[in-house]
């Protein structure tokens, strides 16, 4: 790819990168920073882009690493907000007195096919934004950035069991949201 093409492609992809970073950092200044670093790294490392993988995939993978660095740094400096250990939200209402589902979960079909559908990721983003900030941070570290659970607990100074509970709550909320806004709406 020649330079001007690269710059054009990066300009085009910038809003996506910002949205991606914002969802995970929930802080505009920090998101701007990691995106700047990513664009710079992409320009400097353009020879590393083989053209075999998708351009966007390549840039997003750089951004992921920048976000991971940012979170690790934040954890070291103690600037990541602590995750609330409390939270009385539970999902017991989903079950009857004998522990059976009130409303049995439905068949969502083949993920590979569904995620290709137009508009799916917009809905997923909406659902992510609806999560409380701390819950979203733990969840994206685990599922988007691929941290091991142990590392998340350590970095965020949470007990393991609390980590599992927070991840569980995130999944339950996302499930509910997708059911309502995506699967229920078609």
């Amino acid at each position: 790819m020649i330079d001007t093409d690269l710059q054009k492609s990066l300009r085009k992809i910038r809003p996506t990168l910002l949205r991606f970073a914002m969802l995970q950092l929930r802080n505009e200044a920090a998101a701007e920073d990691v995106v700047q670093e990513t664009l710079l790294a992409a320009l400097e490392g353009k020879s590393a882009f083989s053209g075999r993988s998708q351009f966007k995939t390549w840039v997003v993978s750089i951004l992921r690493n920048k976000i991971v660095d940012h979170l690790r740094r934040g954890a070291r400096e103690g600037s990541l907000p602590l995750v609330d250990e409390q939270g009385d939200e539970d999902f017991d209402a989903l079950f009857d007195g004998t522990g059976h589902w009130q409303e049995p979960p439905g068949d969502w079909g083949d993920p590979a096919a569904v995620i290709e559908q137009r508009g799916f990721y917009e809905i997923l983003e909406l659902c992510m934004k609806a999560l409380p900030e701390n819950v979203a941070r733990v969840f994206t570290m685990r599922e988007v950035l691929g941290f091991e659970t142990e590392e998340i607990c350590k970095e965020l100074k949470m007990s393991s069991s609390n980590c599992w509970v927070v991840l569980y709550r995130a999944r339950m909320r996302l499930r509910e949201c997708l059911q309502m806004r995506w699967f229920g709406a078609r």
């Binding site: 991606f20 569904v114 990721y121 997923l124």
Partner: peptide, 24 residues
């Protein structure tokens, strides 16, 4: 249990969807 099997698949679905985030 069919219901829990569906739930299990929903959890796999979430994992796969977020591994591919933000989509193409």
């Amino acid at each position: 249990c069919t219901a829990c099997r569906c739930f299990d698949r929903q959890m796999d679905f979430l994992r796969q969807a977020f591994r591919n985030f933000p989509g193409e």
